[in-house]
Design a protein around this nucleic acid. Structure first.
Lengths: 330, 330
DNA sequence: AGGCACGATTGGAACGTTCAAGTTGCTGGA
DNA sequence: TCCAGCAACTTGAACGTTCCAATCGTGCCT
């Protein structure tokens, strides 16, 4: 059984004091070249690693960030956050932070978890996903001065806190332009009920681009909650119009997948474009707007570490551009 | 700004000593009823929470478990582990453990991360996924007496350590019986190259069930690496045989999805069954063998906490039964 | 030579908790 | 009456680290 290696073990081995070892680790520049080398050799030879718990007790910093993992839902849209999570863990590691997970049924209970994690584990920061109008979580955190970044804009006040987001409107605009370029004029929209930041944003991209092209979007949109059957139903409604749309654009891959069923049935098949480029889209050949999730996660870590390690100044927001991934469906 | 609430704050407030507060938390039975109540009221009133870092320094226990999150790959099979992860986090929380994530490129580097996490964060235990023959990770952990559970059998020696798994052979057997009951005799198999524990197990379910039904499986199997195009190619090969199979069973949804393309093209369409019941399968109507991932995760936590909290005795393994989810494809 | 600033290093103290070893005060048996 | 035994509670110490103030040379300026 190997003895526990502490900073004192290293100090003895390198014939210096505790504090000098600590300095080599935390402020190398104040230690003389030769001493530093000797200490570093001892560290390597003994396989020493700083005990985070002890460091944390002194400094109040845990080098831990937390994010919420959603309860398993649909499985299609859920995968978006999962891919984001992968990126978060990966980039966090390279920045010296570990990622901790938690679950919470609603915003209120999520806040309770924040409270717990901060008090029990001294968390350094949080990454929030899926923000919406009047999000209570961000105000709670901001009031207490807890560092955090959101993946998703603060829809009410863009300067409220630091955030990373993907330009949904630009994505749907690009998809709309693609369909316009293919000769389509009447392009239908299947989206979520008005009021959600993300949903309204994506819809705006479609709406404004059609307008700019001189097409009146009136009557070409349907609103529904997310889900494959709802997408199918709405597509059916749109395609049954007197002058039906010749192409469909959807707010999510779930809706698009349902729409695809209805669209393939009609003759000739109506092109469909989805949003999120989920594995399902790739599998069934659905053209979809792809969010750069890996980069989004990386930028979240960048911003968070900037707040944590750097001077106390909130870095500017980041708005990333999505890309259209073309497949058979459009 | 609220003052930091420590055990001493609570002690003063309840007019007892530090240690008594500690006892109320860790060994309530040795504290007099009335005192206990007073302390608990103080805890509630002040919103006290034990500082895990300090506790950990004393006890060497962190109430943290870690698991590896795979780099984003395919997206179809990746989702299986993601769903498992959700369950793990959720059940872990109810047992008082938080989940920490890490990534690692291969087994060797994964071991390096274990070493780091144990030394730096005093991790209580690990949950490993995707075990295979001669897995170096389990031997490393076992040698050091680190508590861990695997989701996946130790294929070489079933008593090597405690594990949770899903009976893959039973799943493919069930699928095979379902196809036999529908009148099929020549049932094709598309799986992975021999040598992987999981792959061989799933194949055995198909093979043995066919044999038991008096059908010779010879020539009805194809081996390939995972992926949609490979599934399609293998299905094409099988369906081009002189006496082709009338139904196809696959080792994964990825393979099945590819097979489905080839199978739908033939007349009449050949039924296809996949494995894992991924969101993609649900979306395209692919019949698939579903693993009880949530329960598997829960049992992993059960076993791990049994080792951690209970007496030092490794609890028996858990083998869960999958179910066949029937959809349009078969 | 004396003083001074500065670079390099050291030792004490503290973070918040639990363990181990006390100290009370009370009950009951010889 | 005395003390063993026990329940209930308290106090000192330790976990491994970093902060802070102090110490020790060493070279430079006057």
């Amino acid at each position: 059984m190997p003895e526990k290696v502490t900073i004192t073990t290293v100090a003895k081995h390198a014939r210096v004091s505790r504090q000098t070892v600590s300095n080599v680790l935390n402020a190398p520049h104040i230690v003389r070249e030769e001493t530093r080398r000797r200490v570093q050799e001892a560290i390597a030879a003994l396989g020493y690693r700083t005990n985070q718990a002890a460091r944390q007790m002194r400094t109040g910093r845990s080098r831990l960030i937390a994010t919420r993992i959603e309860p398993t839902r649909d499985g299609i849209n859920g995968s978006v956050l999962d891919r984001f999570l992968h990126g978060l863990t990966e980039t966090g590691e390279t920045a010296g932070y570990r990622t901790m997970l938690f679950t919470a049924a609603d915003a209120e209970r999520e806040i309770a978890v924040y409270d717990d994690l901060l008090a029990s584990y001294d968390l350094d920061g949080f990454v929030l996903t899926g923000t919406d109008h009047g999000d209570p979580r961000t105000t709670w955190l901001a009031e207490r001065g807890v560092p955090f970044v959101t993946f998703g804009r603060p829809w009410d006040d863009l300067d409220a806190h630091c955030w990373v987001d993907v330009d949904g409107a630009a994505g749907t605009a690009q998809a709309t332009r693609h369909l316009l370029a293919s000769g389509h004029r009447r392009i239908g929209w299947i989206g979520w009920p008005a009021g959600s930041g993300v949903g309204d944003d994506r819809r705006a991209g479609w709406h404004d681009t059609l307008r700019a092209a001189g097409v009146d979007p009136a009557g070409l949109a349907r609103e529904t909650v997310d889900g494959i059957p709802h997408g199918e139903r709405c597509a059916g409604e749109l395609l049954a119009l007197a002058t039906p749309p010749t192409a469909l654009l959807c707010a999510s891959d779930s809706l698009a997948l349902g729409a695809l069923k209805a669209a393939c049935a009609s003759e000739p098949p109506v092109p469909v474009i989805g949003f999120d480029d989920t594995p399902v889209a790739a599998a069934v050949g659905l053209t979809s707007v792809s969010q750069p999730l890996g980069e989004a996660a990386a930028r979240c870590v960048d911003l968070l570490t900037a707040v944590l390690d750097g001077p106390h100044r909130t870095p500017g927001p980041v708005l990333l551009q999505p890309t259209l991934v073309r497949r058979r469906s459009a």
